[in-house]
Nucleic acid binder design. Structure first.
Lengths: 193, 193
DNA sequence: GTCTATAGTCCGATAGAC
DNA sequence: GTCTATCGGACTATAGAC
């Protein structure tokens, strides 16, 4: 993080990171599969922990279990680390490959949660949708938490629950248009080359 | 796609792709920012098209507009290209970097949809959540469409609407646990090292 | 089109811990 | 003896600079 803050991610070579840590470049690659991974150390273990929380929770609707597990795993750990989280997010946002790695990690977490719901007896399709819905709430809540200018705003756990509630409101409405895509659909109904 | 099917993505060099196309390696990088992009050509234009559809639709609830636009843009174009889509997804699924690029592209599409909803007068937070919700429905529907063994199953557009409806059901329930994370939260309530 | 740097892999060698 | 962590060199492909 020191080197990234100084020269940026792209401007920092693996050799420099290794040297700062008192190691060689080759050793770095024994610990991290690629350069990006150094910013996501421990994410697999965290996903496992969230999954375990989902499994262990008392009976509840699927989405409630997901948001409770996410709040419990991230809310308590991250509140107090706001400035560190901001710094890390700034580095990630400034680099395309890092952003891609991050969404991929979030995807793995989604899959782990879906599987954990399955172990609670939730059927496959519902588990997938509840996991995706919970992760939408988490990502939106996290982004708001990072973006807030307030030094000590609403804690992350509260935000997650509120975002999940807002998501429920958005998905509650009817899905059919008054005149089902009359203009839009006919314009593309024939196969284009 | 021919070369990827023969030797796999990693086993195919940019030089080979360029040669097959009658070009040089450097010219390839003039058309595509990196090797991965060759599998996502036209995705930016497609995102723009979806956004335009969202803007142009008649008045409707935000999520209904999103699913209608996605169905209209992808449903008609992709049905009939199922085997091609399966081949492409197989290549992407077999390579980590390609999977990461794909989720990143889907993230860009989500942002474009959210912005388009803003131009319909939807407020920011609701736009984001409706875009995310619609994309969850799209991704789940797409995965089911690809995975189905049936040669001619339910068309993609129908699946999207059904997944959105299922998502509404999942997010409808109460969000609080009976005993708000009594066991799970207390175990991690103190700051861990 | 040429040149170059960096990421990442494969080979093997060494040394300490148990 | 086995496991694991370190290191070194040679090598290729991606990708950027010019």
């Amino acid at each position: 993080m020191e080197l990234f803050a100084e020269h940026g991610y792209d401007g920092t070579t693996v050799a420099e990171i290794a040297e700062r840590a008192g190691l060689t470049e080759r050793t770095f690659f024994r610990h991290f599969a690629d350069k990006r991974e150094v910013l996501f150390a421990g994410s697999d273990e965290l996903a496992e922990r969230v999954a375990q929380l989902v499994v262990d929770l008392p009976p509840a609707p699927p989405l409630a279990a997901v948001t409770a597990a996410l709040s419990s795993a991230f809310g308590d750990q991250l509140d107090g680390l706001l400035s560190w989280a901001r710094q890390r997010q700034a580095v990630i946002a400034a680099n395309r490959e890092l952003g891609e790695r991050e969404v991929a990690k979030l995807g793995s977490l989604t899959a782990a949660i879906s599987q954990a719901l399955g172990r609670r007896g939730v059927d496959g399709p519902t588990a997938r949708l509840a996991a995706e819905a919970g992760m939408v709430a988490f990502r939106v809540a996290f982004d708001r938490w990072i973006a807030d200018d307030l030094p000590a705003g609403e804690p992350l756990g509260e935000r997650i629950r509120r975002c999940a509630a807002e998501l429920g409101a958005v998905t509650a409405g009817p899905l059919d248009l008054a005149q089902p895509d009359s203009a839009a659909a006919t314009a593309t109904s024939t196969a284009s080359s």
